[in-house]
């Protein structure tokens, strides 16, 4: 070994791979069928089907519409009856096309099996509708510093004999004609099992894509509040996806987080809701 070998070796290695990686990249991402399906207590099943796409694919209205699956065969069975869902068009939703039952309506204590056949792929999932829980009381609570704004307070009693999971929604016809999950919409009963629970309801974002975090309702309006019970698998999905929305742009979030899905052969959720709706006049 010559006298300067270590120095030469050091310099050669140091400058060999100094290439800046590109922030954009192409990856062989394989699209999957995404299920956003629900069946509510005493309501028809609704199933939105889309294809997932590569992260850096071109985004325009044409491509967004192309992601929507309109040619699938979708069936829902409650163990006794089976119904093929019909494709309907409704611009109040995104995507504006979805599949809906016409006869079958959600009942508690039944297992609902979803089956989607698309391009030769079979996607299946199962869910249940837990017993709905009624609100004992609900009222508008004005902000101390500005009485024209405020939040809604709801109270209900948890069933102490089982694990319960809750998701809350509000509907304000003057803004968006569909139910929107509230700000922090999820609760499990680990800490209030069998007790009376008081929840403050703040207005949720229509979409996490344009978070306004405008949390207060305007007094004088009439708001529909929905309390929905759901099973553990569905709760896990919504909980994980919520963490994903909050943490994906947060350095202190985990880099190993996974969204737990109850869909076989695809991603997304098939969720049964034991839901009840209440109309609250904000005054």
């Amino acid at each position: 070994m010559t006298k300067y070998t270590p120095i030469i070796l050091m310099l050669a290695l140091a400058f060999s791979y100094c290439k800046e990686p590109d922030l954009y990249y192409t990856d062989n991402y394989e699209s999957q069928v995404v299920v956003d399906g629900s069946i509510e207590y005493n309501a028809p099943a609704m199933v939105f089907l889309t294809m997932s796409s590569s992260y850096f694919g071109i985004i325009d209205s044409v491509n967004l519409l192309k992601q929507i699956i309109t040619t699938a065969k979708v069936t829902v069975s409650d163990g006794e009856t089976e119904e093929i869902l019909t494709l309907v068009k409704d611009y109040d939703y995104f995507p504006p096309y979805f599949y809906k039952t016409t006869l079958l309506k959600g009942e508690t204590d039944k297992v609902y099996t979803l089956k989607v056949i698309h391009n030769g792929n079979i996607i299946t999932a199962q869910t249940t509708i837990p017993n709905p829980v009624s609100l004992d009381t609900f009222y508008f609570e004005p902000k101390p510093d500005n009485a024209s704004l405020g939040n809604i307070v709801v109270e209900f009693t948890d069933n102490g004999n089982e694990e319960n999971y809750y998701r809350f929604f509000t509907l304000d016809y003057s803004e968006v004609p569909r139910f929107i999950p509230t700000y922090f919409p999820l609760n499990d009963d680990k800490m209030f099992n069998g007790q009376r629970f008081r929840k403050k309801i703040f207005k949720g974002n229509k979409s996490m894509l344009n978070r306004e975090d405008d949390l207060f309702f305007v007094s004088g309006k009439t708001i529909n509040v929905k309390i929905a019970t759901l099973d553990k698998a569905s709760f896990n999905f919504w909980n994980d996806i919520q963490s994903e929305f909050f943490n994906s742009s947060n350095p202190f979030g985990s880099s190993n987080a996974v969204v737990r899905s109850n869909i076989n052969g695809g991603i997304g959720v098939w969720c049964g809701y034991g839901s009840l709706n209440y109309s609250v006049v904000l005054q």
């Binding site: 800046e20 922030l23 991402y29 956003d36 992260y55 995507p95 229509k206 979409s207 994906s248 991603i267």
Partner: peptide, 29 residues
């Protein structure tokens, strides 16, 4: 090393991410 989204999907009007294998990508030097 870092994990980045490679795919995305729509769920209730939101965009959710599908991630790469863990730490498959690199931050700039």
């Amino acid at each position: 090393a870092m994990t980045l989204p490679i795919g995305r999907y729509i769920i209730q009007g939101n965009i959710a991410n599908v991630y790469s294998e863990p730490n498959k990508f690199r931050m700039p030097n």
